[in-house]
Design a protein around this nucleic acid. Structure first.
Lengths: 218, 218
DNA sequence: CCAATAGTGTCTATTAGACAGTATCTA
DNA sequence: TAGATACTGTCTAATAGACACTATTGG
């Protein structure tokens, strides 16, 4: 049985200024000490019940947060991706509202203008963004970027940023209704300027961890 | 850096008698020697350029075939899934036409009536079947189960078995046309009884390895 | 010619999008 | 009350499914 270096890396994604951002940390150790990279580290068999646990631990220890959504992305492997030798990284992606991120601890970089990262982290980032954008077409996934509570116009904007195109308001609301995953918070409205305030919603409890899928997309 | 047992397992799927089957092999070594399980084994850092390579090697060595389609499924990890210790399995799934499978080398089991398997192979199998059935809704994936050449009625039957429901013939043909991934083999017809023979098609070369996705599903 | 399935034309039903109207806030 | 955005009703366009008809084979 050959020795293989086993790590977990997390693509921590959030929305800031209507753009999708990834959280990067300066590496504390060699290789690439001091270089901004995805949060990650070795699997710790004493602490971690599985790699999902490892990812949660890294987010807690390195970014100081508990993500509302965390999903396995894929594994990346080979002899060249890590200078220490033949390695595997089990990659996860996490979605968090910007409010959870401490900008003193992490650097937020625009996902589309992040041109290079150490190891094969650019590939991992691209895969995560592609997965998120693809799933945004037909699922409740983007809700986890919108925070605990939000209005329908805010949520539509989140979907639009992820999908990269404007959406029809009537169709969007019909789909949200069809998904039946939101509940209005009675009497709570959010004002955003000199106009009618919007109803505030939250995800129903059943959909906080589980995704809702649409038959035909948005 | 803790030692982690790193393996690759492959869910080899095919269609036989209008049912989805998984290829199992009797394990040659402990643990679970002699028990039918998914083909798998240790990563070999000298031989394998990455885990995709490991999966190809296992299919070649253990099942004696080169799959037309092989994709990473997910990783499964933890202290309890393998009696030898904390382990990770990078799981892949392969789609092959039944004609490629040598039934002397492998056992074909119905995916829905396979009730238990060693390790967490039942979980891995279930995840693969779910992924295949889900992707069948809106992609060209099922074509890889249909063989090199096939007629439209045959291909529709493949989709129907995977999706578990009959499909509208007119809509199905509209979608196949829209995907623009098939080419008719001029003059080649396939007779299947006392009735009009059907036109034979094959996947266009560009779609042999890459998937074609539908905007709105079948 | 009959039975059976391949393949197609077309009508109907369902779903998505455009547009415009009413509602409700601040300045 | 003017202007802005929230929300909704309804018409139109696009898409999917039902149905029926023609085509072509073996027996």
């Amino acid at each position: 049985m050959d020795p293989v270096i086993c790590t977990v890396d997390v693509v921590l994604l959030t929305l800031q200024d209507d753009a999708l951002k990834v959280a990067l940390l300066k590496r504390e150790r060699e290789p690439y000490q001091g270089v901004a990279a995805l949060p990650g580290g070795y699997i710790h068999v004493e602490k971690d019940a599985d790699t999902h646990d490892s990812a949660m631990r890294m987010l807690r220890d390195k970014a100081g947060l508990v993500p509302p959504y965390l999903e396995q992305l894929a594994s990346f492997s080979g002899p060249a991706r890590d200078p220490r030798g033949w390695s595997i990284s089990i990659a996860y992606y996490a979605l968090v509202p910007a409010s959870l991120i401490s900008q003193e601890r992490v650097l937020l970089a625009d996902v589309d203008s992040t041109l290079q990262l150490p190891f094969d982290h650019k590939n991992i980032l691209d895969a995560a963004v592609q997965r998120l954008r693809s799933k945004s077409q037909y699922s409740s996934l983007p809700c986890h970027l919108a925070g605990e509570t939000f209005t329908l116009p805010q949520l539509q904007k989140v979907y639009e940023v992820l999908m990269g195109e404007p959406l029809n308001k009537v169709s969007f609301r019909r789909k949200m209704d069809e998904m039946d995953m939101l509940e209005a918070i009675e009497g709570q409205m959010m004002a955003a300027g000199a106009h009618r305030p919007a109803q505030v919603y939250r995800l129903k409890a059943a959909f906080r961890k589980r995704l809702q899928l649409l038959e035909r997309g948005l």
